[in-house]
Amino acid sequence: MTDLSRRAVIKATGAAGVSILPVGLAGHEATAQEAATVGARGAQPTTYLFFNPEEAAFVEAAVARLIPADDKWPGALEVGVPNYIDKQLNGAWGAGERLYRSGPWQAGTSSQGYQLPFTPAELYRTALGAINAELKAKTPFAPRSSMTRMSTSIRSWPPARAVR
């Protein structure tokens, strides 16, 4: 399950509805400034039910880059987008409740949409694991945000519906 190529991981994750930054863009800058912004705005601590701390750190940094805070409005991190994704992944949506889940799986065409065997939860876990493994091997990933430090991680793996 973990031998997806980097390209496949990024592409597949995008197909699930949230674009994850290509590794090259994400590497160096989940800044202290972003972490500080969270504290300054007094965000509620997030209790993660799906993401482990390492996964949460990446997702938090990624959404902060995708929709950053500015001087007028908070960004995706400040309004709790990682929390929303976490709860979706931990529930029926994450378990692929409405997906057709019988093979055989084929590459498909770009017009046919999502064609991988993973539930969204499996896809995130696999993709985030591969991304973090690669980041560890190359550029150390960013320091964890204050939100992650506040978070409690309760792992819920495997998901309710097991891999075939």
Binding site: S19, L66, I67, P68, D70, K72
Partner: peptide
């Protein structure tokens, strides 16, 4: 497609 420019355009 993302980032500050996207956010401000949406707003």
């Amino acid at each position: 497609a993302w980032g500050l420019g996207w956010k401000q355009a949406v707003a």
